[in-house]
Amino acid sequence: MGWLRRRRRPAELPSARQLLSLMDAAPTGWILLDPLGQVRHVNPRAEQLLASNIALPADGLPLESLCSDAELAACVAIARRQDRPQRLEWRYRDEDLDVRVVPTSGGWLGVQLQTRRSLEAQLEQQERWVSDVAHELKTPLTALLLVGDSLAARVNSGNAHLVERLQRELKRLQELVGDLLELSRLENTLPGSGLRLSTVDLPDLVQQVWAGLRPLAEQRGIVLEVLASPGLAIQADRSRMHRALLNLLDNALRYSPDGEPVQVSFASSVGWMLVVVRDRGAGFSDEDLEHMFERFYRGDPARVRSPRAGSGLGLAIVQQIALSHGGRVQARNDPDGGAVVELLLPLHLQSLQPLSGLQGPA
Protein backbone atom coordinates (compact mmCIF):
# COMPACT_ATOMS: atom_id res chain seq x y z
CA MET A 1 0.00 0.00 0.00
CA GLY A 2 2.88 2.37 0.73
CA TRP A 3 4.22 1.77 -2.79
CA LEU A 4 0.80 2.53 -4.25
CA ARG A 5 0.59 5.76 -2.29
CA ARG A 6 3.94 6.91 -3.61
CA ARG A 7 3.19 6.01 -7.23
CA ARG A 8 -0.38 7.33 -7.43
CA ARG A 9 -0.82 10.50 -9.43
CA PRO A 10 -2.90 13.41 -8.11
CA ALA A 11 -5.39 12.96 -10.96
CA GLU A 12 -6.19 9.47 -9.66
CA LEU A 13 -7.19 10.66 -6.19
CA PRO A 14 -10.92 10.42 -5.45
CA SER A 15 -13.00 13.58 -5.58
CA ALA A 16 -14.80 15.05 -2.57
CA ARG A 17 -18.08 13.63 -3.88
CA GLN A 18 -16.54 10.14 -4.14
CA LEU A 19 -15.13 10.38 -0.61
CA LEU A 20 -18.54 11.36 0.75
CA SER A 21 -20.08 8.40 -1.09
CA LEU A 22 -17.53 6.09 0.54
CA MET A 23 -18.34 7.65 3.90
CA ASP A 24 -22.06 7.05 3.35
CA ALA A 25 -21.38 3.37 2.60
CA ALA A 26 -19.25 2.88 5.72
CA PRO A 27 -20.60 0.50 8.40
CA THR A 28 -19.56 2.97 11.10
CA GLY A 29 -20.95 6.44 11.71
CA TRP A 30 -19.07 9.48 10.38
CA ILE A 31 -19.55 13.21 10.99
CA LEU A 32 -17.46 15.71 9.03
CA LEU A 33 -16.68 19.05 10.72
CA ASP A 34 -15.18 22.06 8.94
CA PRO A 35 -12.48 24.33 10.48
CA LEU A 36 -15.20 26.47 12.10
CA GLY A 37 -16.75 23.44 13.80
CA GLN A 38 -19.78 23.35 11.49
CA VAL A 39 -21.25 19.97 10.55
CA ARG A 40 -20.72 19.46 6.81
CA HIS A 41 -21.75 15.84 6.40
CA VAL A 42 -23.43 13.10 8.42
CA ASN A 43 -23.55 9.59 7.01
CA PRO A 44 -26.62 7.33 7.43
CA ARG A 45 -25.05 5.21 10.18
CA ALA A 46 -24.28 8.30 12.28
CA GLU A 47 -27.86 9.52 11.83
CA GLN A 48 -29.07 6.13 13.03
CA LEU A 49 -26.78 6.08 16.08
CA LEU A 50 -27.69 9.65 17.06
CA ALA A 51 -31.39 9.14 16.26
CA SER A 52 -31.22 12.26 14.12
CA ASN A 53 -32.19 13.00 10.55
CA ILE A 54 -31.60 16.66 9.75
CA ALA A 55 -31.12 18.47 6.46
CA LEU A 56 -27.91 20.48 6.62
CA PRO A 57 -28.11 24.03 5.25
CA ALA A 58 -25.41 25.32 2.91
CA ASP A 59 -23.58 27.05 5.75
CA GLY A 60 -23.76 24.00 8.03
CA LEU A 61 -24.83 23.66 11.65
CA PRO A 62 -22.80 23.57 14.87
CA LEU A 63 -22.21 20.11 16.30
CA GLU A 64 -24.42 21.00 19.27
CA SER A 65 -27.42 21.22 16.92
CA LEU A 66 -26.88 17.60 15.93
CA CYS A 67 -25.91 16.31 19.36
CA SER A 68 -25.67 18.50 22.44
CA ASP A 69 -23.22 16.72 24.73
CA ALA A 70 -20.42 18.34 26.75
CA GLU A 71 -18.25 15.21 26.79
CA LEU A 72 -18.25 14.86 23.00
CA ALA A 73 -17.68 18.60 22.53
CA ALA A 74 -14.67 18.46 24.88
CA CYS A 75 -13.18 15.52 22.97
CA VAL A 76 -13.55 17.41 19.68
CA ALA A 77 -11.98 20.54 21.21
CA ILE A 78 -8.95 18.59 22.49
CA ALA A 79 -8.42 16.93 19.11
CA ARG A 80 -8.53 20.31 17.39
CA ARG A 81 -6.25 22.01 19.93
CA GLN A 82 -3.63 19.25 20.10
CA ASP A 83 -3.97 18.30 16.41
CA ARG A 84 -3.90 14.59 17.18
CA PRO A 85 -6.54 11.84 17.29
CA GLN A 86 -8.66 11.43 20.42
CA ARG A 87 -10.73 8.50 21.61
CA LEU A 88 -13.81 8.56 23.83
CA GLU A 89 -15.96 5.87 25.41
CA TRP A 90 -19.33 7.58 25.24
CA ARG A 91 -22.75 6.72 26.63
CA TYR A 92 -25.51 8.26 24.50
CA ARG A 93 -29.22 7.44 24.67
CA ASP A 94 -28.68 4.07 26.37
CA GLU A 95 -26.06 3.06 23.79
CA ASP A 96 -22.35 2.57 24.55
CA LEU A 97 -20.36 4.12 21.71
CA ASP A 98 -16.68 4.23 20.84
CA VAL A 99 -15.81 7.66 19.38
CA ARG A 100 -12.68 8.62 17.46
CA VAL A 101 -12.01 12.23 16.50
CA VAL A 102 -9.44 12.45 13.70
CA PRO A 103 -7.86 15.80 12.68
CA THR A 104 -7.05 16.23 8.99
CA SER A 105 -5.38 18.94 6.94
CA GLY A 106 -6.81 22.44 6.87
CA GLY A 107 -8.51 22.16 10.26
CA TRP A 108 -11.16 19.63 9.18
CA LEU A 109 -12.18 16.90 11.63
CA GLY A 110 -13.71 13.47 11.15
CA VAL A 111 -15.78 12.03 14.01
CA GLN A 112 -16.22 8.25 13.84
CA LEU A 113 -18.98 6.56 15.86
CA GLN A 114 -19.16 2.83 16.49
CA THR A 115 -21.22 0.80 18.91
CA ARG A 116 -19.18 -0.85 21.62
CA ARG A 117 -21.02 -4.09 20.93
CA SER A 118 -19.84 -4.27 17.31
CA LEU A 119 -16.31 -3.17 18.25
CA GLU A 120 -16.03 -5.74 21.01
CA ALA A 121 -17.32 -8.44 18.66
CA GLN A 122 -14.61 -7.56 16.14
CA LEU A 123 -11.90 -7.56 18.81
CA GLU A 124 -13.11 -10.89 20.16
CA GLN A 125 -13.05 -12.43 16.69
CA GLN A 126 -9.53 -11.12 16.02
CA GLU A 127 -8.30 -12.35 19.39
CA ARG A 128 -9.70 -15.81 18.69
CA TRP A 129 -8.01 -15.85 15.29
CA VAL A 130 -4.67 -14.73 16.72
CA SER A 131 -4.94 -17.30 19.50
CA ASP A 132 -5.64 -20.09 17.01
CA VAL A 133 -2.78 -19.05 14.72
CA ALA A 134 -0.41 -18.74 17.68
CA HIS A 135 -1.27 -22.23 18.83
CA GLU A 136 -0.74 -23.65 15.34
CA LEU A 137 2.63 -21.89 14.97
CA LYS A 138 4.09 -22.27 18.45
CA THR A 139 3.55 -26.02 18.77
CA PRO A 140 5.50 -27.09 15.64
CA LEU A 141 8.18 -24.48 16.34
CA THR A 142 8.74 -25.89 19.81
CA ALA A 143 8.94 -29.40 18.38
CA LEU A 144 11.44 -28.30 15.73
CA LEU A 145 13.60 -26.58 18.35
CA LEU A 146 13.72 -29.84 20.30
CA VAL A 147 14.70 -31.70 17.13
CA GLY A 148 17.45 -29.15 16.54
CA ASP A 149 18.79 -29.64 20.07
CA SER A 150 18.79 -33.40 19.54
CA LEU A 151 20.63 -33.10 16.22
CA ALA A 152 23.24 -30.78 17.73
CA ALA A 153 24.29 -33.56 20.11
CA ARG A 154 24.65 -36.13 17.33
CA VAL A 155 26.08 -34.50 14.19
CA ASN A 156 29.77 -34.50 13.39
CA SER A 157 31.84 -31.34 13.36
CA GLY A 158 31.55 -31.03 9.59
CA ASN A 159 27.77 -30.59 9.75
CA ALA A 160 27.57 -28.72 13.06
CA HIS A 161 27.29 -25.34 11.32
CA LEU A 162 24.14 -26.51 9.51
CA VAL A 163 22.44 -27.44 12.78
CA GLU A 164 23.53 -24.15 14.34
CA ARG A 165 21.95 -22.29 11.43
CA LEU A 166 18.75 -24.34 11.82
CA GLN A 167 18.57 -23.52 15.53
CA ARG A 168 19.24 -19.84 14.89
CA GLU A 169 16.48 -19.55 12.29
CA LEU A 170 13.98 -21.44 14.44
CA LYS A 171 14.66 -19.12 17.37
CA ARG A 172 14.20 -16.14 15.07
CA LEU A 173 10.82 -17.52 13.96
CA GLN A 174 9.86 -18.09 17.58
CA GLU A 175 10.69 -14.45 18.38
CA LEU A 176 8.72 -13.32 15.33
CA VAL A 177 5.63 -15.22 16.49
CA GLY A 178 6.00 -13.68 19.95
CA ASP A 179 6.30 -10.17 18.49
CA LEU A 180 3.27 -10.69 16.26
CA LEU A 181 1.19 -11.89 19.21
CA GLU A 182 2.26 -8.91 21.32
CA LEU A 183 1.46 -6.45 18.53
CA SER A 184 -1.95 -8.02 17.94
CA ARG A 185 -2.77 -7.77 21.65
CA LEU A 186 -1.77 -4.11 21.71
CA GLU A 187 -3.72 -3.23 18.57
CA ASN A 188 -6.84 -4.88 19.96
CA THR A 189 -6.72 -2.98 23.26
CA LEU A 190 -8.33 0.41 23.73
CA PRO A 191 -5.98 3.19 24.94
CA GLY A 192 -5.69 3.22 28.72
CA SER A 193 -7.22 -0.22 29.18
CA GLY A 194 -5.40 -3.37 30.25
CA LEU A 195 -2.50 -1.40 31.77
CA ARG A 196 -0.95 -2.26 35.14
CA LEU A 197 0.03 1.24 36.17
CA SER A 198 2.80 1.94 38.65
CA THR A 199 5.45 4.60 39.20
CA VAL A 200 8.26 3.98 36.70
CA ASP A 201 11.67 5.66 37.05
CA LEU A 202 12.56 5.97 33.36
CA PRO A 203 16.36 6.55 33.62
CA ASP A 204 16.63 3.58 35.98
CA LEU A 205 14.57 1.43 33.60
CA VAL A 206 16.79 2.48 30.67
CA GLN A 207 19.84 1.23 32.59
CA GLN A 208 18.11 -2.08 33.34
CA VAL A 209 17.19 -2.55 29.68
CA TRP A 210 20.73 -1.72 28.54
CA ALA A 211 22.15 -4.31 30.95
CA GLY A 212 20.57 -7.00 28.78
CA LEU A 213 22.04 -5.47 25.61
CA ARG A 214 25.48 -4.69 27.07
CA PRO A 215 27.19 -7.96 25.97
CA LEU A 216 26.23 -7.24 22.34
CA ALA A 217 27.25 -3.58 22.68
CA GLU A 218 30.63 -4.38 24.25
CA GLN A 219 31.52 -6.62 21.31
CA ARG A 220 31.36 -3.51 19.12
CA GLY A 221 32.74 -0.97 21.58
CA ILE A 222 29.39 0.82 22.01
CA VAL A 223 28.48 2.44 25.33
CA LEU A 224 25.28 4.03 26.62
CA GLU A 225 25.14 7.70 27.60
CA VAL A 226 22.16 8.66 29.78
CA LEU A 227 21.51 12.38 30.26
CA ALA A 228 19.02 12.64 33.11
CA SER A 229 18.34 14.33 36.41
CA PRO A 230 16.89 12.45 39.42
CA GLY A 231 13.16 11.96 39.83
CA LEU A 232 12.13 11.46 36.19
CA ALA A 233 9.20 9.12 36.81
CA ILE A 234 5.83 8.56 35.15
CA GLN A 235 2.74 6.45 35.77
CA ALA A 236 2.95 3.60 33.26
CA ASP A 237 2.78 -0.14 32.71
CA ARG A 238 6.34 -1.12 33.66
CA SER A 239 6.41 -4.31 31.58
CA ARG A 240 5.26 -2.59 28.41
CA MET A 241 7.53 0.38 29.00
CA HIS A 242 10.44 -2.05 29.37
CA ARG A 243 9.50 -3.55 26.00
CA ALA A 244 9.26 -0.13 24.32
CA LEU A 245 12.67 0.98 25.60
CA LEU A 246 14.22 -2.39 24.70
CA ASN A 247 13.00 -2.07 21.12
CA LEU A 248 14.24 1.53 20.83
CA LEU A 249 17.69 0.79 22.27
CA ASP A 250 18.05 -2.41 20.26
CA ASN A 251 17.15 -0.50 17.09
CA ALA A 252 19.72 2.20 17.88
CA LEU A 253 22.34 -0.47 18.57
CA ARG A 254 21.73 -2.12 15.19
CA TYR A 255 22.38 1.12 13.31
CA SER A 256 25.22 2.52 15.44
CA PRO A 257 28.77 2.44 14.04
CA ASP A 258 31.30 0.50 16.11
CA GLY A 259 32.82 2.60 18.87
CA GLU A 260 30.10 5.27 18.80
CA PRO A 261 27.77 5.81 21.79
CA VAL A 262 24.00 5.44 21.98
CA GLN A 263 22.51 8.39 23.86
CA VAL A 264 19.26 8.64 25.82
CA SER A 265 18.08 12.02 27.12
CA PHE A 266 14.92 13.29 28.78
CA ALA A 267 12.83 16.46 28.81
CA SER A 268 9.69 17.22 30.78
CA SER A 269 6.93 19.80 30.57
CA VAL A 270 3.60 20.23 32.32
CA GLY A 271 2.09 16.76 32.31
CA TRP A 272 4.45 15.24 29.71
CA MET A 273 7.76 13.37 29.46
CA LEU A 274 9.90 13.13 26.33
CA VAL A 275 12.41 10.27 25.94
CA VAL A 276 14.95 10.89 23.16
CA VAL A 277 17.09 8.02 21.79
CA ARG A 278 20.00 8.98 19.49
CA ASP A 279 22.51 6.98 17.52
CA ARG A 280 25.44 8.12 15.35
CA GLY A 281 24.58 6.05 12.31
CA ALA A 282 23.64 7.12 8.79
CA GLY A 283 20.22 8.44 9.82
CA PHE A 284 16.83 7.70 8.27
CA SER A 285 15.98 7.85 4.60
CA ASP A 286 12.80 9.60 3.46
CA GLU A 287 11.22 6.19 2.93
CA ASP A 288 12.18 5.13 6.46
CA LEU A 289 10.53 8.21 7.96
CA GLU A 290 7.34 7.48 6.02
CA HIS A 291 7.02 3.77 6.79
CA MET A 292 9.23 2.84 9.76
CA PHE A 293 6.34 2.35 12.21
CA GLU A 294 4.46 -0.01 9.88
CA ARG A 295 4.39 -3.77 10.39
CA PHE A 296 7.32 -5.68 8.88
CA TYR A 297 8.98 -2.58 7.47
CA ARG A 298 12.77 -2.77 7.40
CA GLY A 299 15.16 -0.03 6.37
CA ASP A 300 17.97 -0.35 3.87
CA PRO A 301 20.01 -3.39 5.05
CA ALA A 302 23.18 -1.65 3.86
CA ARG A 303 22.80 0.83 6.74
CA VAL A 304 22.56 -1.86 9.44
CA ARG A 305 25.84 -2.19 11.35
CA SER A 306 24.81 -5.29 13.31
CA PRO A 307 24.61 -8.81 11.82
CA ARG A 308 21.44 -9.49 13.83
CA ALA A 309 18.22 -9.31 11.79
CA GLY A 310 15.13 -7.72 13.29
CA SER A 311 11.55 -8.92 12.88
CA GLY A 312 10.33 -5.64 11.38
CA LEU A 313 7.79 -5.37 14.22
CA GLY A 314 9.84 -3.64 16.93
CA LEU A 315 8.98 -0.02 16.15
CA ALA A 316 5.35 -0.89 15.38
CA ILE A 317 5.15 -2.35 18.90
CA VAL A 318 6.71 0.84 20.33
CA GLN A 319 4.06 2.91 18.56
CA GLN A 320 1.21 0.81 19.94
CA ILE A 321 2.64 0.95 23.47
CA ALA A 322 2.89 4.74 23.19
CA LEU A 323 -0.71 5.00 21.96
CA SER A 324 -1.96 2.70 24.72
CA HIS A 325 -0.46 5.16 27.24
CA GLY A 326 -1.97 8.22 25.52
CA GLY A 327 1.37 9.20 23.96
CA ARG A 328 3.08 8.96 20.60
CA VAL A 329 6.42 8.19 18.97
CA GLN A 330 8.11 10.00 16.11
CA ALA A 331 11.45 9.94 14.30
CA ARG A 332 13.74 12.48 12.67
CA ASN A 333 17.35 12.95 11.61
CA ASP A 334 19.78 14.82 13.84
CA PRO A 335 21.21 17.88 12.03
CA ASP A 336 24.65 16.86 13.34
CA GLY A 337 24.28 13.32 12.00
CA GLY A 338 22.58 10.16 13.18
CA ALA A 339 18.99 9.18 13.88
CA VAL A 340 16.64 10.35 16.63
CA VAL A 341 13.51 8.58 17.90
CA GLU A 342 11.34 10.47 20.39
CA LEU A 343 8.88 8.77 22.72
CA LEU A 344 6.35 11.20 24.20
CA LEU A 345 4.38 10.03 27.26
CA PRO A 346 1.97 11.64 29.74
CA LEU A 347 3.18 11.77 33.33
CA HIS A 348 -0.25 10.62 34.49
CA LEU A 349 -2.54 8.78 32.10
CA GLN A 350 -5.74 10.01 33.76
CA SER A 351 -4.94 13.73 33.49
CA LEU A 352 -3.58 14.59 30.05
CA GLN A 353 -2.49 18.22 29.65
CA PRO A 354 -2.33 20.17 26.38
CA LEU A 355 1.08 19.72 24.79
CA SER A 356 3.13 22.81 24.01
CA GLY A 357 6.77 23.72 23.62
CA LEU A 358 8.27 20.37 24.63
CA GLN A 359 11.63 19.68 23.00
CA GLY A 360 14.42 17.30 23.76
CA PRO A 361 17.92 18.44 24.62
CA ALA A 362 19.94 19.50 21.60
Rank of each mutant, 00 (worst) to 15 (best):
E287F: 13
D179Q: 14
D250C: 07
L4P: 00
L274A: 03
S256Y: 00
R17N: 05
E164P: 01
Q350R: 14
P203Q: 12
Q125G: 09
R254A: 04
N333Y: 06
R81K: 07
N53L: 10
R238A: 07
P10Y: 11
Q125C: 09
G283Y: 13
L50G: 15
D250S: 15
A25S: 11
P57I: 12
A46S: 12
E136C: 05
D59F: 05
L202G: 01
G212K: 14
L245R: 07
G360L: 07
L119Y: 01
P35L: 08
V340S: 03
Y297R: 09
L166M: 09
L113I: 04
S268L: 10
L213A: 15
S311T: 15
A46F: 04
R243G: 05
L190T: 13
D149K: 13
M273S: 04
A362P: 08
D250H: 07
S105P: 00
S229Y: 09
L119I: 02
S52K: 15
L176N: 05
D96Y: 04
L113S: 07
E169F: 14
R8P: 04
G148M: 04
P27I: 15
P354M: 10
L186K: 02
R5K: 12
Q114R: 10
D179S: 08
R298M: 13
W30C: 13
P203A: 06
A217T: 15
V270A: 15
D149T: 06
W210L: 04
W129C: 01
N156W: 00
E187H: 03
L88R: 12
P191C: 06
L49K: 05
T199M: 07
P35S: 07
G221K: 10
L137A: 15
P261G: 06
R17M: 09
G360T: 07
P346A: 08
R6E: 09
L344N: 08
R214N: 11
G192L: 00
E89W: 00
W129E: 10
A16T: 11
V200S: 10
I317L: 14
G299D: 08
Q359H: 07
C67I: 14
I317Q: 10
L245V: 09
A322D: 06
L202T: 13
V276P: 05
L36N: 01
P103D: 11
L197R: 09
Q208M: 08
Q82M: 06
V206W: 13
L173D: 00
F266W: 04
W3F: 03
Q319V: 02
L4D: 11
W30G: 12
G106T: 15
L205D: 01
A74P: 08
A26V: 07
E287N: 06
S256D: 02
T199P: 00
L20S: 02
E287M: 12
H242K: 05
L190E: 14
